[in-house]
Write a protein that binds this DNA or RNA. Structure first.
Lengths: 112, 112
DNA sequence: TTAATATGTGCACATATTTTGATTTTGTCG
DNA sequence: CGACAAAATCAAAATATGTGCACATATTAA
């Protein structure tokens, strides 16, 4: 195995110890991946204003219904949104307001 | 153009108004994309503990040097890390501690 | 200048993602 | 039931991403 060039072994061990393991890094990465697409970010923004049905989301975002539906499935699968069916129409909403904290941290970082 | 089925026009206008535009959504998405890969997250974590040279980062993460270098270029290009050269070796560090806030918002969301 | 070492780049490959049109499922209401 | 409407799924194209090999570049030391 490769050896560090500048870190002493003790410091390396320490860093390795504090480093998130691959499983946890992957979970975090999967979460951030949901925020790493402009369509999904706009869906999240829209839903943070008001719950909405698929068709209205497609209207507001001016995008294909299928695209919206697909992205909503992704957001569902990661628990970011939930939904309720009322007859033919399905209403989506953010599952918790904590999602906005993540968005905001990005907005603040960029200084908007 | 598609019409909303359930929102009245006024509400639609309002939502459209508050929705981040595509340019800003893309910028945010690009930022989050940097956090959407486990290798980059681990690099960021390592650098939040201590600045380090490329080789040591490769050691600590137990990954190919070229892979690390590629990912560091990405992190550089988005301003998340900066570097200084000292002779042959290049030291990388987080450009601001604000980056940790973004990471933390994700960690908190997941409840770790 | 040459050798040795640290880092960056170009390319190729595999894999994943985003989007759309066509189709299907689910539900409503005559 | 049949006609319609909303949303989901399928299939496929276009695009993007992560990784590592081979090589290029930069810096130091001899």
């Amino acid at each position: 195995m490769m050896q560090p060039k500048l870190l002493d072994k003790r410091t390396q061990k320490e860093i390795t110890y504090y480093l998130p393991d691959k499983v946890m890094s992957q979970k975090l990465a999967d979460l951030f991946a949901m925020f790493a697409d402009k369509t999904r970010l706009r869906l999240i923004s829209a839903l943070s204003i008001s719950e909405m049905c698929v068709n209205d989301l497609a209207c507001v975002l001016e995008m294909n219904q299928t695209t919206i539906s697909h992205q909503l499935q992704l957001l569902r699968s990661t628990g970011i949104v939930t939904f309720t069916r009322q007859g033919k129409t399905v209403f989506y909403r953010l599952s918790t307001s904590k999602i906005n904290q993540v968005m905001l941290s990005g907005v603040e970082y960029l200084g908007f």
